[in-house]
Design a protein around this nucleic acid. Structure first.
Lengths: 123, 123
DNA sequence: GCAACATCAAGAATGAATTCTCATTAACGA
DNA sequence: TCGTTAATGAGAATTCATTCTTGATGTTGC
């Protein structure tokens, strides 16, 4: 059976504390504050399992490696800062957008990504 | 100076004829109809130069390799068919979406991707 | 507490996309 | 047409994210 290890706890805590999607490298950096000897392979192993277990969801953004965020957050979108490369969550949504597709196309989902400067980089 | 080769012409014609963003592999397959001995390295070489020359633009979509489309098409978005994996252009746009970002964030651009079934795969 | 064994850390290995190498081909100015 | 040389084709090499391997470690059931 699965064991509750310090490393997995550190990985989950890092994602909960960040409250934004993190890449494997970011997860490593954040979680190492709690578990200093943590290695990147352990991040990948645990992230894979946490996604399978439904605790994390993968967030794919254009031209960027996969990021991961805690599951059950409801429908939302993302903001990608072009300076610091961090990704943030964005609350609203302009609607289902089914009207944009050409006739005969069937829209099942949509993704919106905003680009620009985050609060810190805009200051 | 740059030469006008059959291969480069075939690559551009393939992209113009397709009227949708193509991946390097798709460009190879389409352009080989016009230039059968075309190789993948030549596709990458020419695509890189055509992007630098401003004739093509790179289209990045979530979780997908880069695709390329002819430049100067105006603001538009994309539809990614989950069955055939082809990407199509979509005309409209719901607006600048600057209101979605949190306070203090500065929105410079946005990308919208629709997912579902294209006309052929929905039939 | 202790033994069994799931998990770990570190580095090697993998895989896929992209780029490089180099002998050959072909574009184009004279 | 011809010579120069940019561009090509094919396969090797590279890159980088991710996964595997190994011996060591730490968690859990008893």
């Amino acid at each position: 059976m699965a064991r509750q290890t310090q490393q997995r706890a550190a990985i989950l805590k890092a994602l909960v504390a960040a409250d934004r999607p993190l890449s494997p490298g970011e997860i490593l950096a954040h979680a190492q504050r709690l578990s200093p000897r943590l290695g990147i392979a352990t991040v990948y192993r645990n992230v894979r399992r946490l996604v399978l277990d439904g605790e994390l969801v993968e967030v794919q953004l254009p031209g960027a490696p996969p990021r991961y965020e805690v599951a059950r957050k409801g429908h939302h979108h993302h903001f990608h800062c072009r300076i610091c490369d961090r990704v943030f969550e964005v609350e609203g949504c302009p609607g289902p957008l089914t009207g944009l597709a050409p006739d005969g196309f069937f829209v099942e989902a949509h993704e919106i990504v905003l680009y620009g400067l985050c609060r810190e980089c805009a200051a």
